[in-house]
Amino acid sequence: MNKNISALVLNTFENDSRVMKEVESLGKAGYQVTIYALHEEGLKEVEQSTFYQVVRLKLWTKKWAKHKLIQLIKYLELVLRLTVLIRKSDVIHCNDLNTLPVGALIKLVRFGRVKVVYDAHEYEINQKPGQSKSSIKLLFFIESLFIRFANRVITVS
């Protein structure tokens, strides 16, 4: 089996046991799995496990301010870099809503020749106590727009 799976997380992939179990199972099944995560000081940029590889991205914009507009620019940098890095994957496993737009963009760029799995680890729309109605509506809009690109959806029950 020579299928390449790219698993996307927007964390450093240090303590993400659910994703680790998933990618280890995929690796044991014979898939070539690469996890793309965020880099932090003190962590290796590339790590090789028996069943998967971890690639941590150093964002040029990481040290910029945490203003909402700047956060959007940081996210756009991440999306563009991932689009280039994983353009040859057979499957993109999007862990959580924040990575789903990346999978959708790559599917568009590749004219549908990539499969997208959306793995919603939580109920994404309203997971924060006291979340504003406008935030909930925005997340609902984003999820309903991009979930259409997913070939498979894994969700909480």
Rank of each mutant, 00 (worst) to 15 (best):
H67Q: 13
V46F: 01
Y36C: 04
Y118Q: 08
L80E: 06
T99N: 01
T83N: 07
L82H: 03
I73Y: 09
N126W: 07
L145S: 08
Y31I: 11
Q127F: 04
Y118A: 10
H121A: 06
F111C: 14
L57E: 04
L76E: 05
W60L: 13
K137P: 03
L80R: 09
L59F: 00
V109G: 04
T12K: 06
I73G: 05
H67D: 13
K62T: 05
G42Y: 00
K21M: 09
V55Q: 12
D119P: 08
Y75C: 08
L72T: 11
V91S: 04
Y31A: 10
L97S: 07
F140D: 12
L8N: 01
L108Y: 10
A104V: 10
K66C: 08
E124H: 05
I92R: 03
L59H: 02
H67W: 14
Q32I: 14
L80P: 05
Y75T: 09
L59C: 04
G103E: 01
H39F: 09
V109K: 15
L38E: 05
V79N: 04
N98F: 09
F141W: 14
E24I: 15
V54I: 12
A29E: 11
L85V: 10
K62H: 08
V84C: 11
F146L: 07
V84D: 03
C94Y: 04
K128Y: 11
K115R: 14
A65F: 11
I5F: 00
I106R: 07
A7K: 08
L100I: 10
N15T: 14
H121N: 04
L57A: 02
L85Y: 09
Q127N: 15
V19Q: 01
H121L: 14
E122W: 01
A65S: 12
V23N: 00
V23R: 06
F111A: 11
L100Y: 03
K58H: 06
L138G: 03
L72I: 15
K44I: 02
L59Y: 02
V109I: 15
V55H: 06
T34L: 09
R81F: 08
I106E: 02
V84T: 12
L85I: 12
R18G: 00
V55D: 00
T34E: 05
L100K: 06
L80T: 15
T12D: 04
E14L: 15
V91G: 00
E124W: 08
K63I: 06
A65I: 12
H93L: 14
L139R: 15
R18D: 02
W64D: 06
Y75A: 05
D96E: 12
A65N: 10
I70P: 08
R81N: 02
R56T: 02
R18K: 11
K28L: 15
E47D: 08
L69T: 10
V84A: 08
K58V: 07
